[in-house]
Amino acid sequence: MNRRALGTFFEGLCRGLTLLTAFALIAILAIIVGNGASVITWEFLSSAPTDGMAHGGIFPAIFGTICITLLMLLMVLPLGVGAAIYLVEYAGRGLGPRIIRAAVNNLAGVPSIVCGLFGLGFFILFVGRNLDRVLQTGLLFGQPAMLWAAATLAILVLPVVIVSTEEALRAVPRSHREAGFALGATRWRVVRQIVLPQAYPGILTGAILSISRGAGETAPILFTGCAYFLPRLPLTHVFGVPMVNPLDQFMELSYHIFIMATQSTDAQLTRPIQYGTTLVLVALTFALNLTAIIARNRGRRQQVTAS
């Protein structure tokens, strides 16, 4: 009887801890929405900061966040998906793939601020400055820019893309590959025409998760390209057509929250703007995460029914 009571107690404890954790999420959302919702207007979303960032909107930060995450995706997706295809479809079980897997694991454990240090030391001061020297471009590449910030973020999310793509590729039944080989298809043809189409939703999930992760990270971009305030958008005109300039600095949502909360001229006065920016960032990452979670659960369920 006593033992049973103890069991009930511990089961209740586990349930309580889980509910408290879930409650933390709700509390966080409630605080953000409660304080930030009143700030959100079309004007807030579509205009630039004014009066030394004490008023105005956050459009440049939204624009910068979208640009940098897309640029990051452009870099990380071919690399990450390629690496996963190599690991699952080509590599087998030798020493090489084991080293790669260990490297991916450890890359996932690298603190984000260390990524930022590396981005500054490698991309800007080593690659950038040497490019400038070779191309005689003065100080074009060797300074903080969207390109380098995106590259630094790409390092951070590379393990996310590799691991989720691997999972998606492994979920494709072996028999489908064998059917392809039996028809005389080469390995790449099997990958491209049989494996990748089936793994596509899983790969997409990984891409979405990496965007959400990249959009929320601040530490890697602190020194690699973020600007406190830019009076213009990071655009350049190529033959009169406006294009995003990857060599320009940019404003970014998570960095905007950070500097508004710590280095604003009057942090108390701009608190509503801080909460509003937070709400926009959280809404963005949540929408992405929720899409990814739903897509994955759906994929898993269908896998279960299919196998």
């Binding site: 889980t18 954790t21 879930a22 933390a24 999420l25 966080i28 953000i32 959400s212 992760r213 959009a215 929320g216 990270e217 601040t218 998570s254 960095y255 929250i257 950070f258 937070t278 960032l281 959280v282 990452t285 949540f286 992405l288 995460n289 929720l290 979670i293």
Partner: peptide, 11 residues
């Protein structure tokens, strides 16, 4: 729980 992990740390 997974969404909790998805909240940006700066937030």
């Amino acid at each position: 729980i997974e969404l909790l992990a998805g909240i940006p740390t700066v937030v």
